[in-house]
């Protein structure tokens, strides 16, 4: 084949010299993400002792390791679910324009930017046995002894809500504002009441967006690491899978075990996301406008 003919063949498939602009980015991602990932898989299959799958076998054989999967899911799933479900009514109410909307969204962004480490520090002070929260409860006579909300499941859960809820809310709000407002008006003129409009028009159009939001929020919650150590109970109820991976690699210097745990973590996450996106595929996912114009 002559070079010109080859070029024409490639051009037919949309391949030409300008695609080289993709090169540097592809190279970086390949070298810093794909290669290490494959390297990690290779390391996990070459444990110091035992067969190729020994690292995985020992991970699943040891209840202390194996249970981290359930622990992580038990924290991440409810947190992500709460963040998404609480966002829906709030975003629905705020989808129109009102005074101070920009201020509100700005304030909501603050916890996202603060990040998990600072949230953890704040929660330790605020929710601790002598913190303001318990003082208020004691002062109001709602409890007799301080409620224990730090160094356990609830500390981690709340830190995930504080950073995850604004994220989910803003995403849901953006999906909601993408739905043509004339659809609800059409529903109203046709005789649909408030609930019927929400459940038969808005919710079906919003559902795919909710699935995506859930996935992204779940990813945030699933990779919980610093707050699980700082406000959680890192050797007990909040010993999440990332702690297991970190400990294996950096405390016990068992690189195969660390890599195996990291890969199990990635797989579990992908399974959950795959399930949610699979369900999303069953929904209507087209345009959310009411027609032309």
């Amino acid at each position: 084949m002559t070079p010109v003919a080859l070029r024409h063949r490639l051009a037919e498939r949309g391949i030409d010299a300008r695609l080289l602009l993709l090169g540097p980015a592809a190279l970086f991602v390949a070298a810093l993400f794909i290669y290490p990932f494959c390297y990690g898989i290779a390391v996990s299959l070459q444990p110091a002792e035992g067969g190729p799958f020994a690292a995985y076998q020992s991970f699943f054989a040891d209840a202390y390791q194996r249970d981290t999967i359930a622990t992580t899911l038990w924290i991440a799933l409810p947190a992500a679910l709460l963040n998404v479900l609480a966002s829906v009514p709030i975003a629905y109410r705020m989808r129109g324009r009102f005074r101070g909307k920009r201020v509100l969204t700005t304030v909501l962004v603050v916890p996202i930017t603060l990040g998990t480490v600072l949230t953890a520090e704040g929660l330790l002070n605020f929710l601790g046995p002598t913190g303001w929260f318990n003082r208020v409860l004691l002062g109001l006579g709602l409890v007799d002894a301080p409620v224990s909300l730090t160094h356990n499941y609830w500390g981690v859960f709340l830190s995930l809500v504080i950073t995850g809820f604004p994220f989910a809310f803003l995403l849901v709000l953006s999906y909601l504002s993408g739905i043509d407002p004339s659809l609800e008006k059409a529903g109203a003129v046709l005789g649909a009441g408030w609930a019927q409009r929400f459940f038969r028009i808005t919710l079906p159009l919003l559902a795919p967006g909710l699935a995506t939001t859930f996935c992204l929020t779940f990813v945030l919650a699933f990779s919980v690491f610093p707050s699980a150590i700082l406000v959680g109970d890192p050797s007990g109820t909040t010993r999440v899978i990332s702690i297991a991976a970190y400990e294996a690699a950096y405390v016990r210097y068992d690189y195969a075990g660390g890599a195996a745990a990291a890969i199990v973590m990635g797989l579990v996450e992908l399974v959950v996301i795959g399930l949610v996106l699979g369900l999303r595929g069953l929904l209507y996912t087209g345009s959310t406008s009411g027609g032309k114009g």
């Binding site: 592809a26 390297y39 690189y255 990291a262």
Partner: peptide, 21 residues
């Protein structure tokens, strides 16, 4: 998809092998 994956993966998952490399 290749560009999407690093954002979807938990940082710890690829961070540990990456740090090793």
């Amino acid at each position: 998809l290749m560009f999407l994956l690093p954002i979807l993966m938990p940082p710890i998952t690829y961070g540990i092998p990456l740090a090793t490399v």
